[in-house]
Design a protein around this nucleic acid. Structure first.
Lengths: 189, 189
DNA sequence: AGAAAACGTTGACATAAAGCAACGTTTTTT
DNA sequence: AAAAAACGTTGCTTTATGTCAACGTTTTCT
């Protein structure tokens, strides 16, 4: 049950078996259906999720009713609604599985306790933040000032798994273009 | 010379005078002119900057010659080309002062040494990353799927100092719209 | 201080992408 | 298994925004 997580942690930091066990013991397994909401718009986020199996996405719905996908996370990565998790304010976004998934969940209290108690976990958290920051940056810069075709090409290059795992509608809402436009672009390569 | 930095640090973490001195002693003062390049496109970033006075921006130039402003930082905040600073790869972006500035610079080696030696500095770095991540996220979401007018309104609401400090041209390149469009929008409020 | 360059604004025009609608296909529900 | 809903694709029309150019103003440079 913890093998994917353990592998992930070991790939990032040097760690002894005891600390690793302590970390893993804080995570609870959650099996979900497809399209299950993990966090609602006005909820405060209290869990960090590690994806053992499946995929999740973060999205909002704007006032005119359109979905806007913010982020997708797949097997073997951490994800949560971080601003809400950190600041304990209403998320103003949704966290949702997009396929049948198995998630390892850790509560915020346990999470910050591990950060405090286990230096390697603090280091791990720092690396997750660094990576998250870099990915967010690259996305801003990858999209900024580009037209629909360039954005699609950018995603194909930098997040090739995205179009394989995610519906056209969701991908379009991630790219900030309409499903029709994405469909037309795809037909031209 | 270190008063703004000390105030910033004290506002984030509890710290004794000795550690604070040790931190400050790693920072070197750099006085710059307006529009001075701190980091060139193909350079590897080796410094973190704290802005004592002035403003800096991060930008790139796309193949068709257009500038794209990624980020602005003003007095009292930290800034660098983080992906390059972390991964030690060519930045593929420019770091530039946009007015006469006074910067406190710390080398990458000293920076990571402080992270290792002084727990409060590690905490500070984590907070900077968290904040940076949240700001990057909010910008993605604030801009995604919105038209030019909504983006301008978003910036007015969330980064009101931006239009005061930054030229129309730079602001437009940050918003991902043309200077003409920004000008037209401003004239309608 | 004067010349040169960069900037901001505005108009006319071109264009990429959105909206809408129709239709067939796939997926979900019961 | 049948019915209903959601999805993907494509044509037509509309619209927001970019491009180009002109002009006056501000800033920079020497």
């Amino acid at each position: 049950m913890y093998s994917v997580l353990e592998k992930f942690i070991k790939s990032k930091v040097e760690i002894d078996a005891q600390s690793l066990d302590k970390i893993c013991s804080c995570f609870v397994l959650l099996k979900t259906k497809r399209n299950q909401i993990l966090l609602d718009y006005s909820q405060v986020c209290n869990f960090y999720y590690f994806i053992n199996k499946g995929s999740i996405r973060l999205f909002t719905i704007s006032k005119d009713g359109n979905e806007s996908s913010r982020f997708f996370a797949f097997q073997g990565s951490f994800a949560t609604a971080l601003p809400s998790f950190i600041d304990q304010l209403p998320a103003e976004e949704y966290l949702q599985t997009i396929e049948k998934s198995e998630l390892l969940c850790i509560s915020r209290a346990d999470f910050y306790n591990l950060v405090k108690e286990i230096p390697q976990f603090a280091k791990l958290y720092t690396e997750i933040l660094e990576l998250g920051f870099i990915v967010a940056q690259k996305r801003i810069y990858g999209f900024q000032g580009f037209d629909a075709l360039d954005k699609v090409k950018w995603v194909i290059k930098h997040q090739p798994q995205l179009f394989l795992k995610v519906s056209n509608k969701m991908a379009a809402s991630y790219l900030g273009i309409s499903p029709s436009t994405l469909s037309r672009i795809k037909s031209k390569l």
